[in-house]
């Protein structure tokens, strides 16, 4: 049941998203590297994820939050 509701919400969400967005010729600002999620800050995100993964009890979200280090 939860799966069906989630799927329905996602579909409704996607349908709603049709009203959002831009035309291809309006992508001048979005095309800049600073606007590219996951790439804008180069290696900083991966460094930060590793530092905070080893100093806090949380990980993941931005990408996969697996282990990948012993981190004593």
């Amino acid at each position: 049941m939860i799966k069906i509701i989630t799927a329905a919400l996602l579909l409704v969400g996607l349908a709603g998203c049709q009203n959002l967005g831009v035309q291809p010729w309006q992508r001048d600002l979005l095309a800049q590297p600073a606007m590219t999620i996951g790439e804008a800050d180069g290696l900083d995100d991966a460094f930060d994820d590793h530092i905070y993964f080893s100093k806090e009890a949380s990980s993941g979200g931005r990408g996969f939050g697996g282990g990948g280090c012993g981190c004593n």
């Binding site: 996607l14 959002l20 979200g61 990408g63 697996g66 282990g67």
Partner: peptide, 30 residues
């Protein structure tokens, strides 16, 4: 030993010419 299994579902959405968003859900089972 330890295994870590992850699922990631994400939506990236252009809102307008100036604004882009991303929403991710990440399940991780160790």
């Amino acid at each position: 030993d330890r295994s870590v299994d992850d699922v990631l579902v994400g939506l990236t959405q252009v809102i307008n010419r100036r604004w882009i968003m991303q929403l991710n859900y990440n399940l991780s089972v160790t």
